[in-house]
């Protein structure tokens, strides 16, 4: 340990890193709980179709199932790349 160590910016401690990562993944998994099993497959197949036309990133597709009023709502959002490539 050098005497000038206190001048270096301190890295965030690993416990807070763990907490932050868990907070995000747990929230995501809770949102998917109780959703039909076909959602991941649906998402994958949609991605394949879309990729015939635009070069989208796997993370750019969001498939969300929610309750609205008395019925279920399947929401699909795709973020298109800035320059649609083929």
């Amino acid at each position: 340990m050098g005497i000038f160590d206190f001048l270096k910016p301190r890295a965030p401690n690993s416990a807070s890193l763990a907490k932050e990562r868990l907070r995000i993944i747990v929230a995501q998994e809770r949102a998917q709980r109780g959703a039909p099993d076909y959602l991941p497959t649906l998402r994958r197949e949609l991605l394949e179709v879309l990729r015939k036309y635009v070069n989208v990133d796997p993370e750019a597709i969001q498939v969300k199932l929610s309750q609205e009023g008395g019925h279920e709502l399947l929401e699909l959002s795709v973020a298109l790349p800035d320059k649609p490539g083929r």
């Binding site: 416990a15 763990a18 907490k19 747990v26």
Partner: peptide, 17 residues
Amino acid sequence: RVQRGDMMSIADVQEIL
């Protein structure tokens, strides 16, 4: 280890779950 910031605290785990 919790005090050193190497391990999540009781409050952290309670909050996440």
